[in-house]
Design a protein around this nucleic acid. Structure first.
Lengths: 248, 248
DNA sequence: AATACAATTTTTGGATACATTAAGCGAAAC
DNA sequence: GTTTCGCTTAATGTATCCAAAAATTGTATT
């Protein structure tokens, strides 16, 4: 699938991973010469990658001044959830009118997969990746079923907001996970029966609560969010991030 | 205002204009050497511009195959309106809670400006630009008042869908314009009074109707809108791309 | 001492030259 | 006659070099 083997695409992947995993911190200056050397490529593909990421929203750019890892305010993070809630609720409303037997089965299978992963009475570490994938697939499926490709496009780009990313499922409370998965059950059933508004309402709350919960977690365990652990690649030793200008 | 000093930004502007104005047709191959020469720049900034536009959604790209002017299906165009309706309705709901006296005055001024432009009993050609700007400013203002920056970001990118662009106000029927502007009146008043849901409902219909009307216009005067992709549609496979026009 | 200004250094933006990839074409094999 | 392989060619991807802009430093003037 991912036969992305142009230097530019490689750089995009590497940089995205570095940013979402917290290896590069918000506000960090992205020095072209140094970054290019680090990645072992020249500045041309690097600049192409940065340009792409800038449009994606992961990095910011000012002409003649360079690229920075984008910083997101609390308002932007919660705004991302707000919009996600609205768009995915919309997806539910539309999807309800497009349900086929195949669609019903696909959603049911995903939900059943979730049941299986939660059966132990806890979300075991070795199941976390699978659960996360299931979750992503479920939400993606609903959006695809909506028949409106823009929804998925925009929600996708909201996932580039670090704390709003799909990869963040740091639910410590199993009851929260159970409830969340129960939402999936209900959404799938509502859609199967063509109850679009009902599915939309559940979905909206499903995502709105995720923000509320993130907010709580942020207050309880702030340190966990400064650097997100990457599932496959642990963050490498970061070079000294020298002090930002604190004056002014 | 648009002091586009860097070549890349200039190229972005030029290309965007060329695409949205229909000078470049959907499906057209964007040949780097030729385009660079046409624009009087080298391939480096051109590629940067194309990369940006590709992320923006105006052009499509396949590695090692090049850039094309993106083609939008009817479904994507109407999907764009659907999402716009939802997002701008959402903006109304949020904005209603953020109204200040300054905001009320700003919206009122825009509406009054519209009144002035429509007073002649017709939208005179020399007023079309001003009316379009007023319209853009009104919608933008509501989105900004929502306090959620993502809304504006996404709606902005929906305006890159050629037929869904702000620039398309080809309303031939003055009554349609009057009604549309009356919607603006009501939205402004509703927001001023904090009636978020009401404003949202009007806004949703305001945009939904725009799609319906576009649809109608499309059937009546198809040639005015999309100078649709030429007879030979290069779907994947390389075809004789003899679509080059006049100047050589 | 502080500020304004000029020269130097650093960094980004752009042009050109080179490498790589893939589409187009033709000859040879079956 | 058809297919397959390899060569040709044209276009894309990358590296390097040069120019322009910004940041920085140092100096001189008030």
């Amino acid at each position: 699938m991912t036969e992305a083997h142009t230097s530019t695409e490689l750089a995009i992947e590497k940089l995205r991973e570095a940013i979402l995993s917290g290896e590069l911190l918000p506000g960090d200056r992205l020095h072209q010469d140094r970054l290019a050397e680090m990645l072992g490529i020249s500045r041309t593909p690097l600049r192409a990658a940065l340009t792409t990421l800038a449009q994606t929203g992961l990095v910011s750019y000012e002409s003649n001044r360079g690229f920075y890892v984008r910083e997101f305010s609390i308002a932007e993070v919660s705004g991302a959830f707000e919009v996600r809630a609205e768009l995915e609720a919309m997806a539910c409303r539309l999807a309800a009118a497009n349900m086929t037997d195949a669609a019903r089965k696909y959603l049911a299978d995903l939900v059943a997969e979730g049941d299986r992963l939660l059966e132990p009475g806890a979300l075991l570490p070795e199941n976390l990746g699978a659960y996360r994938r299931m979750n992503v697939n479920f939400h993606t499926a609903v959006m695809d079923l909506s028949g409106n490709a823009w929804i998925r496009t925009f929600v996708q780009s909201l996932h580039n907001v670090p704390a709003a990313s799909d990869r963040v499922i740091m639910w410590r409370d199993f009851r929260v996970i159970e409830r969340s998965h129960d939402d999936h059950h209900r959404i799938a059933r509502a859609l199967a029966k063509g109850q679009g508004e009902r599915a939309a309402a559940i979905m909206r709350e499903h995502i709105t609560f995720a923000l509320e919960h993130l907010d709580l977690q942020l207050k309880l365990y702030p340190q966990d969010f400064l650097r997100m652990p990457s599932p496959d690649k642990p963050a490498k030793g970061r070079k000294a991030s020298r002090s930002k200008r604190s004056s002014e």
